[in-house]
Design a protein around this nucleic acid. Structure first.
Lengths: 144, 144
DNA sequence: TGAAAATTTTAGCCTTGGCTAATTTATTGG
DNA sequence: CCAATAAATTAGCCAAGGCTAAAATTTTCA
């Protein structure tokens, strides 16, 4: 059991980092640059919190910025952002595929994405690409 | 976007509480009582951390205990534990159903469970009970 | 241009959830 | 029964991630 919870804790430590790089990449892509005020609005936190968090991400080598300047990603940050974006989109699409409404899917995928392993992500992608796996319950029920 | 992240933060704040009540319920069920040492081993944290966390859960009305005594749940705690256990089991079973191996399913469901809304949980349960959406339609058609 | 507005930063505070080390209390075996 | 061991608590530390309030900087527009 331990290893499981150790991973969960590790996942959590990187959740905010992942959310930030994903958002920064998005703002840069959509409006050309990313500012503190954008992230504050996006995450519903104060500018002070953004400043604090961005400083940590700079220390971690994910983000580059300078005082009163826009916020950008390092190549490491861009790489992470890309991975997260893809994973996020897969989870979102998958939730919709299993019948969850778009609004709920968007909300849930935001929380879920950070806890999806490579294996589970692959399983979701496979289903999105190839359809459902071998039929079990439904047909068995029908055949009873 | 904001509301989504506000919910994610709220979810996270209750994650550890949920994990603890779930574990406490499990220890009580399996071995009759729950001690600090059980939780420390379960979550791979030090006894000091367990003490600290349990004190918080007591403040929050989920847990009852006394110095050097076993750790139990309040009725509020039991109710939460039950809800979490069921949700956890659904997520786990669902991951296995989509083709994820049991070990990965166990690990991923641990992190995912806290971010699953009622709606998504219902979608997973429906699939576990009735089979895949597209297949169901196919069978319905066959039965026409 | 220069004053008001917006943005960013700083300082100082808080809770959560970790840790170690030392102490206290219970438990167990000789 | 009491000493050794195990378990639990306490004290004090830390980083993450929030906040407010005030100061500094940049931007905007009259």
């Amino acid at each position: 059991m331990d290893e499981v919870h150790i991973r969960t804790r590790r996942d959590h430590a990187s959740e905010i980092a992942e959310d930030y790089v994903e958002a920064i990449a998005e703002f840069v892509a959509v409006k050309g640059s990313c500012r503190s005020v954008d992230l504050a609005e996006c995450f519903a936190v104060t500018p002070a919190t953004v400043n604090n968090t961005v400083a940590r991400l700079v220390r971690n080598g994910l983000v580059i910025t300078a005082p009163y300047q826009p916020i950008g990603l390092t190549s490491k940050g861009r790489k992470l952002a890309l991975k997260c974006k893809e994973r996020h989109e897969v989870v979102n699409a998958f939730l919709i595929a299993i019948g969850v409404d778009a609004g709920t899917a968007a909300a849930d995928s935001e929380g879920i994405e950070h806890h999806i392993s490579k294996t589970t992500l692959a399983a979701m992608k496979k289903i999105l690409a190839d359809g459902w796996p071998a039929i079990s319950i439904a047909i068995e029920k029908q055949n009873e």
